[in-house]
Design a binder for these strands. Structure first.
Lengths: 367, 367
DNA sequence: AGAATGAAGTTGTACATACATTTAAGATAA
DNA sequence: TTATCTTAAATGTATGTACAACTTCATTCT
């Protein structure tokens, strides 16, 4: 059952093992085609066929008139393969995303992988473009942050074809519900719950929440926020749930906050979808002469650099950021390198539980 | 002088042009090896040699028993080549770098290039690792932000080999003095000059400057800062030039500022190397009960997101950020695509002049 | 000493032949 | 009709020969 392989393949394997074992050291000259042919009782053409493939793979270098040599990078090249991993995020420059990318990059680099980066600007058409570009050359795997995850997913065919090609990929921050893939994310609902519980425990009863609702993160944080009110038996004024979308940025929330603060029974506390929103809201309040946290307590989310830069250090919830990027890279590499081994296609979710960091922007309610 | 090319190469070219012209459409079957051999009066072996190379290049697909076919992606593959560009930055996650990367990514994606990202953490060993990883597969070009540019450059051999291989690359933010390559950067000296002139014009005479001096940007900003004092005939107290290095972060500057503010003739204005430093300095001052800008005017640099998040909106100097990334990408693509055309290896510098943005953290000196 | 020549050995190109393996389609048998 | 077999044609493997082009080195000539 053995002698089925073509002779030129057998010769290739023999040479490969000689290179790997060091019998043929990098830079050294390989016996000439005729010598090999005689040694192995093959025709020179057959030897040439084996040499050609090895040259194409970058293992050998042939020089007319001189001979054939083992390439210096041969040993490494053998082990290397493509070893490139792609990351598709919604935004590159803003906020916590750079930290996620950085964590992934550090981990990938230390493991000998290269990082291909693309961003979708939260636009599904660009997501398609990114995927097409990424897949135009061989990839070992992909890390994807879904675009506008609360809506549908028109690029499903891409993902299905990736699954059928056995190209490992996983999602971060959110997942497309239609796909069964591993996902690393923050427990947003738990985060919303923790923040609201904290404020309620501090005595606040009129708490306004601001949520971006075109991605699932915002929706889930809102869920937790409402849950906390329900379990405490506190009625939630519809005016105190402000939703907005990416395109509106902070304008609409800021306007809403102005109105609320101008009213007679103004809220005593505020929970913001993230720090990027919390900061302009904080500044708005202070502009209006409302002291923070004296008259208005504020809790943000994500523990970004902005939280410490703000005029009043923000009480906020942690986001693993770099750790999430690193862990995503680790898991993806495991998926890639275990491909041959255990087929334990782990489709589970990994949830990070956000923790509250108490700083100065929230305090117990004074009566 | 024509018939020098080997027959199998001629056949390859003939087939290539047929594919490009559409005579052989993607997915269609190519005449069999024997047919081609007869048509062109070649042996089947020679035809096989041509087919093999085309198959290796991804243009053809051969199926035993069925025939040879033009690959669907053939037309694109032909025009595409690698089309991957690498970016090596010092940091990925912090501050203005994400914006630079983002600008470059947007431009590259729209032009059909992929972006390979790596960061050096301002560590020369990692720089070498990054370069090696990047160059392990074919690249079209590289954008590099030098690591610790004020010191020497141990990776010079890498860069020289890149030049000799005609691999286009350019530098951003700073350049290694030893290399003659195009460079896009902010006119840091002009920036330091502008900031210091502004404060002097506002009546300030005791101005303290904080500079990170292990990269050339800090050194140049310091130069401009001193220049402004010289031209105005204002003596510069050595105590009022604080230098620090990356590893010290903001600790040393903060400590220095405390000392200075506690002294009897404390400074009335402050120029920070960048916004990331200006913000903790601003907070330090306010903690000590020194009002900004009332008792201390502060000017930052880079116009980062922090500038607006800070308790007092920072007066600062612009940094092109995304535009710099976009322009770097544009120029690199031009270098790549003009390779065949004009050999106008533009080694010039492109200087962005920073502009002052007046916000609230600096005001005229009250006597 | 230096330059030109030539021989030997290497890979590159080209052709010829033979058989093996795979595929698809047609012929044949149940 | 269905299933099986046969066959032709395609690519894959293998060997042999011949000569071309290039590199190296020793020889020879100037």
């Amino acid at each position: 059952m053995s002698k089925r392989l073509p002779k030129y393949i057998l010769l290739k394997n023999e040479l490969l093992s000689r290179i790997e074992s060091g019998k043929l050291s990098p830079g050294s000259q390989v016996p000439s085609e005729n010598e090999i042919a005689e040694q192995f009782s093959l025709s020179r053409q057959t030897v040439r066929q084996a040499f050609s493939e090895l040259e194409r793979q970058g293992l050998l270098e042939r020089v007319q008139g001189k001979g054939t040599f083992v390439r210096h990078a041969a040993v490494r090249a053998e082990a290397m393969q493509p070893r490139t991993i792609g990351i598709v995020t919604t935004y590159i420059s803003d906020y916590i995303f750079p930290h996620i990318v950085r964590g992934a990059e550090a981990e990938l680099r230390s493991r000998g992988y290269r990082l291909l980066l693309a961003s979708t600007d939260n636009d599904k058409e660009k997501e398609m473009e990114c995927l097409r570009l990424m897949l135009s050359e061989p990839l070992s795997g992909l890390i994807i942050e879904p675009t506008k995850s609360a809506e549908g997913n028109p690029n499903l065919p891409f993902y299905l074809s990736m699954q059928s090609k056995n190209l490992p990929f996983l999602m971060i921050n959110e997942r497309y519900r239609e796909l069964e893939v591993p996902c690393l994310r923050v427990d947003d609902e738990q985060g919303g719950l923790t923040a609201a519980r904290y404020l309620i425990k501090q005595g606040h009863r009129r708490i306004v929440g601001f949520f971006k609702t075109d991605d699932l993160q915002g929706v889930n944080r809102l869920k937790g926020f409402m849950h906390a009110h329900r379990e405490a038996g506190i009625p939630l004024d519809p005016e105190h749930v402000v939703t907005y979308t990416t395109s509106q940025k902070s304008e609409l929330p800021v306007k809403k906050l102005r109105e609320l603060l101008a009213s007679t029974d103004r809220p005593t506390a505020l929970f913001a979808y993230n720090d990027a929103l919390a900061v302009p809201l904080l500044n708005t309040a202070r502009e209006m002469g409302v002291s923070v946290p004296g008259e208005l307590s504020i809790v943000g989310f994500d523990d970004s650099a902005l939280a410490l830069a703000a005029g009043v250090p923000l009480t906020t919830l942690t986001h693993p950021k770099e750790e999430l990027g690193r862990e995503a890279a680790r898991r993806l590499i495991a998926m890639i390198e275990n491909e041959a081994g255990a087929p334990s296609e782990d489709t589970g979710e990994f949830l990070y539980v956000p923790k509250l960091i108490e700083r100065d922007s929230a305090s117990p309610l004074k009566r």
